[in-house]
C-alpha cells in the first residue's frame, strides 16, 4: 500500500480510518501499512486525540418553544403574504382608470380604421336600414310610374 501521508489524494484514507468509515479490507491493509510507517502512526495518534477532544463538545439543548416560535412566524408570514398581495393590488389601483381610458382609445381607433370589421348592429341602425329599403322601394315605384306616364305620352304622340 502507498503511504497515505505521502500521496495527498489518499490522505482521506487516514481521516476515514480515524472516523471508522473504512471497510474491513481497507482497514486491514492500512493497519498493516501503519505497523511499518511511523508518520502514519503519528497521524493516527494525533487524529484520535483530536477526535476525542471534538467529541467532548456536546450538542446544546434546544429551546422548548422553538417549534412554537417557528409556527408563529410561518403563520405571520402567510398572513403578511395576503396583506402584501392586497397591497400590491391596491398599489395598482390608481393606474386602473388610465388603463381603462387607454383601452377605450385603442378600441375606438381600431373601429374607426376598420369600420367594416365591426358591423353596426344597434337598434337605431336596424331602423335606419328598414327606412332606407322602404325609401328605395318608393323610389323604384315612382320611377316605374314615371316610366308608365312617359310610355303613355309616347304612344299618344305616335297616334
Amino acid at each position: 500500500m502507498t503511504c497515505p501521508i505521502e500521496t495527498r489524494e489518499n490522505a482521506e484514507l487516514l481521516l476515514d480510518y480515524c472516523a471508522r468509515k473504512l471497510d474491513a479490507e481497507t482497514t486491514r491493509l492500512l493497519e498493516r501499512h501503519m505497523q511499518g510507517c511511523p508518520a502514519c502512526r503519528e497521524f493516527r495518534a494525533g487524529q484520535k486525540l483530536l477526535w476525542d477532544a471534538l467529541d467532548a463538545w456536546e450538542a446544546m439543548p434546544v429551546s422548548g418553544d422553538f417549534n412554537r416560535r417557528l409556527y408563529r412566524r410561518i403563520e405571520e408570514e402567510s398572513r403578511a403574504g395576503w396583506r402584501q398581495r392586497l397591497m400590491a393590488w391596491a398599489s395598482w389601483r390608481p393606474a386602473l382608470p388610465v388603463a381603462a381610458a387607454a383601452c377605450l382609445v385603442l378600441a375606438g381607433s381600431f373601429i374607426l380604421r376598420n369600420p367594416a370589421v365591426v358591423p353596426d348592429v344597434s337598434p337605431e341602425a336596424v331602423v335606419t336600414e328598414v327606412e332606407q329599403v322602404e325609401r328605395t322601394l318608393d323610389d323604384l315605384e315612382m320611377l316605374r310610374q314615371l316610366n308608365l306616364v312617359a310610355r303613355v305620352e309616347d304612344s299618344s304622340r305616335t297616334m
Partner: peptide
C-alpha cells in the same frame, strides 16, 4: 473538500 478537511484537521491537531 478533502483538501479543506485535511488542512483543517492538521491545524486543529
Amino acid at each position: 473538500v478533502k483538501s479543506l478537511l485535511f488542512r483543517a484537521y492538521e491545524t486543529l491537531r
